[in-house]
Design a protein around this nucleic acid. Structure first.
Length: 470
RNA sequence: GUGGCCAUGGUGUAAUGGUUAACACAGCAGGUUGUGGUCCUGCUAAUACGGGUUCGAUUCCCGUUGGCCACCCCA
């Protein structure tokens, strides 16, 4: 039901339905979700008028933005690899049941936020809304349990959720994530939190880890019952949302911001009190390691996460400064998921970090990504013969390792010097008719304006000397 | 999914129920022959889409699409 509705919505945004003759209400038409007997005389037509627009909640990453992305990617890759994680790339499209079974039928992501559709073969498929389930699937499919454990993997890539876009929230966004399989040692929980923290430090953003434990399959259900019993008795004092939460997602009751509800949580049973010994011990160890590593954290007994597969440790990364409550990343342990998806019982944990949100943080804190792409040399040419020479010279200089920019289309020297200036080139090499005849090039120092004639055979060596790399 | 605000050149803004929709920045071309950063001149370029009201709509109304914000939830 939910699913069928989705198809219609998705279709509407990209296709204009052209009505032929008889006017059939499009609404009525879309209600026959299975177009088995195509009574409806309308056919989808690709929109031919107007300029095609980017889809809602999706974004072009333009050249001006790339410096942020470059830095983010490098930081993530260097860090993950330094800690022994290996890269994995899984498909963007997966079978819908993978997410339904892992994330949970009851969750918002599965109930209303998946980009799902029936493919031409009749399979129900989904653009991945999160990164963990696909990696788990891959771990099982490729028998990675027979590799030396723990298996440590990381990924960078796009995720999709059919949501209403707003600040820091898109229908397509990118995540940096890591997953560790095959060991339940709390040192691993601490390690991934450290990694998340270090990633943000690497791009100049301070973060705090909020940690909680949800217990295991033994102690969590017990707690859940206690909590539900408590809130049932106070039902009349709850807000509308929370009344729904009692049956749907009781743990969420604990972080409602309504005055009435947050007053009630003072008296509410605490999950930390109902953890069994092993879970308590595990959490304590995690916190000890965090102390050792000097990762700033707060123990937040009200922290809950949106996916069903978490056990024991859960955490979220929040910015240290500012009132932003949107998480920069989050994750936790999911000791039951591999088995739940049909693999051997395998403990595991991981996190996902929203890269658009990382960039947002950088911008709001006015952190400029480091970049040194100013060219050493700009190559300008004048006239047809010179252009042909310049084309060849450009390649010689590039191969010689000179950071180079150039232009082969502008006619006037003036406009080429303007470009050279804008790019911040230290030298401009000028190649005109006269130089071609003389077999020379003209090297202009953009700072001083001094110019020097150089034998074109010595162009590479002279330029290398000038820029101090010869 | 719910609620609120909004939509004018590439960007940021202005204006109007009635002639060529204004300004700044950016872009492009010039300011004698092949020389940048400043300055001057010119040019390019916009009322998101579809209906309605009206003699006339960019302006008012409705719908669609999209953006922003809050909620739900999340990265």
């Amino acid at each position: 039901m939910v699913f069928k509705k989705k198809i219609v919505t998705v279709g509407k945004s990209s296709i204009v339905r052209k009505q032929v003759e008889k006017k059939v209400s499009p609404r009525a038409a879309s209600r026959n979700n299975r177009p088995a007997p195509p009574v409806v005389e309308e056919k989808p037509v690709i929109r031919t008028k107007g300029v095609p627009q980017v889809l809602r909640g999706m974004k072009d990453v333009l050249p001006a933005e790339q410096k942020f992305w470059r830095q983010i990617r490098h930081t993530a890759e260097d860090l993950a690899e330094a800690y022994g994680f290996e890269r994995i790339e899984t498909p963007i499209l997966e079978s819908t049941p993978l997410f339904v079974r892992s994330v949970g039928v009851q969750t918002d992501v599965v109930e209303k936020e998946m980009f799902s559709f029936i493919d031409r073969g009749g399979d129900n498929v989904t653009l991945r809304p999160e990164g963990t389930a696909p990696v788990v699937r891959s771990y099982i499919n490729h028998g990675m349990f027979s590799l030396p454990q723990p298996v440590k993997l990381y990924y960078l890539g796009p995720m999709f959720r059919y949501e209403r876009p707003q600040q820091g929230r898109f229908r397509q966004h990118n995540q940096f994530g890591v997953e560790v399989f095959g060991d339940e040692n709390p040192v691993l929980d601490a390690e991934i939190m450290l990694l998340a923290h270090l990633f943000y430090r690497g791009i100049g953003v301070s973060s705090v880890v909020h940690v909680n434990s949800l217990g295991c399959s033994d102690c969590r259900p017990r707690y859940r019952e206690e909590l539900v019993a408590y809130y049932r008795s106070k039902r009349s004092q709850l807000c509308e949302d929370c009344k729904r939460r009692i049956s749907k997602n009781p743990l969420r009751l604990l972080d409602c911001k309504e005055d009435g509800c947050s007053a009630l949580k003072e008296e509410a049973p605490q999950i930390l009190d109902s953890l069994d010994e092993a879970c308590k011990e595990h959490l304590m160890k995690v916190l000890e390691y965090l102390d050792d590593l000097q990762v700033p954290y707060v123990l937040d007994p009200h922290l809950v996460r949106g996916f069903d597969y978490y056990t024991r440790t859960v955490f979220e990364l929040l910015p240290e400064e500012g009132e932003t409550k949107t998480a920069l990343g989050g994750g936790g342990r999911y000791d039951g998921l591999v088995e739940q998806l049909g693999g051997r019982p395998t403990p595991a944990c991981g996190f996902g970090i929203g890269l658009e949100r990382a960039i947002l943080q950088m911008k709001s804190q006015e952190i400029e990504p480091s970049q040194n792409d100013t060219p050493d040399v700009f190559l300008a040419q004048l006239g047809d013969n010179a252009r042909r020479k310049a084309f060849v010279l450009f390649e010689e200089l590039r191969v010689a390792g000179i950071r180079l920019a150039g232009n082969f289309t502008k006619g006037s020297l003036k406009s080429q010097l303007e470009i050279a200036n804008r790019l911040g080139a230290r030298y401009t090499v000028i190649l005109g008719q006269q130089e071609v005849i003389d077999g020379t090039i003209l090297v202009r120092d953009m700072e001083s304006g001094m110019q020097e004639i150089v034998d074109s055979k010595k162009a590479v060596s002279e330029l290398k000397k000038k820029i101090g790399r010869g």
